[in-house]
Amino acid sequence: MGTDGPPGDKKIFRIFAIPRWREFRETYPRIAAFMALVIAVLLLTDVVLICKRIEYGRELALLQASMTRTEVRRIDAIEAAENNIMAVTVELARREALGDRKLHLVVDSGKSLMYLEREGAVLREMPVRLGQQRNVGAQPDTVCLAPPRGKRLVIRVVDDSYRWEVPMCAFDQRGQAVPGDRTLPGALGPLAVILDSGSVIYTQPKAGPLNDANYVLPGSVRAEAADIEAIKANLQAGMAVYFL
């Protein structure tokens, strides 16, 4: 019959037939013992390696988790330290303002109020709006415009004839086309104060990108024109402004 195949094939097939261990052991007792020993040693080695692998994996996972916790704690610590240093700066500024014998301004960002003060006496309380911190510009030239903290100085008091270069972000944020010349007269309103940090305390202008009751230039302060007008005679270059 064709199913029997050639005799050579049967021989090869017999080689790969699965004999029993007893038969093999009886035929090759020494080799069988040696092979059994080798298999046992290899199995044991593999088990040990598996255990080590699991142990290393666990240790690695623990270390990575610990590293993540450490990183979180480090970030928390840095943030806490920065907050403390900021609180110290604000507290020092508050105390310096209380003892300042010269006329000065105090901007309380928490209360959205600006005070005209001298020797801790509040001469005038003025509601203000602070422009929130914002990153402006395209990478890598991003600039963070944040309200100042601590003590600043007035470098100039200007009226509506002053030509001020309006930051590009003011046009962008208000969805206006950026003109070729951003230096606009009266851009800071009827009266404004320019600080040494570059921030401004301004009033709402009649025109220009800052003429929006709902918009405050990031990092700056917008006051009511009537308030600035009432204290105008007292504002001068070199006057201290404390940001709390």
Partner: peptide, 15 residues
């Protein structure tokens, strides 16, 4: 051949 027929290939394979 005899060694392989008796199952040697299997144990060598295992090793």
């Amino acid at each position: 051949g005899h060694f392989l027929r008796k199952g040697g290939w299997k144990y060598i394979g295992i090793i």
